[in-house]
């Protein structure tokens, strides 16, 4: 798994790639929760091939923490397999989901 940050006004885009499973979830949790104070945070999952339940938990925590801090967050670029994991767990309605980073930034602006 790799994490890359890109400041794209009016927000911050964090691009994740690889597998988000119980091996990498801890690292992702630390990286994302450190950015939960951003007023507009976009997490780009375009290069993520797999998300396990441990990974889902990280996104839930991030959404909770952003909401608590008054910030807005969105997910984008979910591959069909990843989208299915969110759907199956019944979590899709809990997130703002957009096709790509530009659309997500526009939605949060």
């Amino acid at each position: 798994m790799e994490i890359r940050e890109d400041r794209r006004e009016p927000g911050l885009v964090v691009a994740v790639s690889g597998r988000v499973d119980s091996n990498s979830a801890g690292e992702l949790e630390a990286a994302l929760l450190a950015r939960a104070g951003e007023p507009r945070l976009v997490v780009d999952l375009g290069a993520v091939e797999y998300v396990s339940s441990a990974g889902l938990r990280v996104f839930l925590m991030l959404a909770k923490k952003c909401k608590a801090g008054g910030g807005k967050m969105a997910l984008c670029g979910l591959a069909p397999g990843v989208k299915q994991v969110f759907d199956l767990a019944g979590f899709t309605p809990l997130f703002t989901v957009e096709p790509d980073a530009a659309a997500a930034l526009a939605r949060l602006a």
Partner: peptide, 11 residues
């Protein structure tokens, strides 16, 4: 057919 409710403990 999935009764499609969210996972537990979230909301």
């Amino acid at each position: 057919p999935n009764a499609a409710s969210p996972a537990l403990a979230v909301i």
